[in-house]
């Protein structure tokens, strides 16, 4: 028993040493566009409306390390929830091959669809208690715009990336990418469908780099 405990502790220490000394990190800021999208619900022909206003979502950017990286062996399932007539999160970044679930947490039907060439699908109308939760595997890189056929103001984005190294900035543009491989790479920031900025970086084992993207 002691032997296995010793092996486990050693493995943990070696693993920890690897992440401390064998991998790099980048942190910095992306300049985000000013303003934010303010959704307005079309309630014209609803028999009954509820009070309340829709939440707004500040712009964010997806920051990722571009390069020829091997694909992650085990991809986590990700979730885009439909709640209070909005997609949460409004922007999701995933690696190619990731399965995304779309649970409905509203008390009304939703009908999620995408006509984006990256992934065309239509999940049909489904209620909150739908099981199994409707899901889609995104098997091509690119941008997918999510919409709801019932609630025309709803819009969400999924950026499908060919890299396992990515993150999403906060509302002020701050980001931190960790566990990056050493070497020369290109750091990219996807800001919106018309704008992606990039910056060449050279990463060293165990070092942290500061990079601000205009």
């Amino acid at each position: 028993m002691d032997f296995f405990v010793t092996i486990a502790i050693l493995a943990a220490l070696l693993g920890g040493a690897g992440s401390c000394f064998g991998q790099a990190a980048i942190e910095g800021t992306v300049e985000l566009p000013k303003g934010h999208f303010v959704p307005v619900e079309n309630e014209r022909y609803e028999i009954v409306s509820k009070a309340g206003v829709l939440a707004t979502d500040p712009p964010r950017a997806v920051v990722y390390l571009a390069g020829n990286f091997s694909r992650s062996e085990r991809l986590p399932h990700r979730t885009v929830t439909q709640k209070e007539l909005a997609f949460i999160p409004g922007l999701l970044a995933i690696e190619v091959g990731t399965k995304v679930q779309f649970p409905n947490e509203d008390d009304t039907y939703h009908n999620i669809f995408s006509y984006s060439p990256t992934k065309r699908f239509d999940l049909g109308r489904y209620p909150p208690e739908e099981h199994p939760v409707p899901s889609v595997v995104f098997d091509k890189p690119g941008l997918v715009t999510l919409r709801c056929d019932i609630h025309e103001h709803m819009r969400g984005l999924i950026l499908v990336l060919q890299t396992p190294y990515f993150t999403i900035t906060d509302g002020k543009g701050h980001f931190r990418l960790t566990n990056l491989p050493a070497g020369r790479h290109v750091l990219k920031a996807w800001i919106n469908s018309r704008k992606t900025v990039e910056h060449p970086v050279e990463l060293k084992n165990g070092a942290s780099l500061q990079a601000n993207l205009p």
């Binding site: 307005v40 619900e41 309630e43 014209r44 009070a51 206003v53």
Partner: peptide, 12 residues
């Protein structure tokens, strides 16, 4: 035109 004026008023 759809307008929301606070949480309780809607105009179209």
């Amino acid at each position: 035109v759809d307008a929301k004026i606070g949480p309780h008023v809607y105009f179209f």
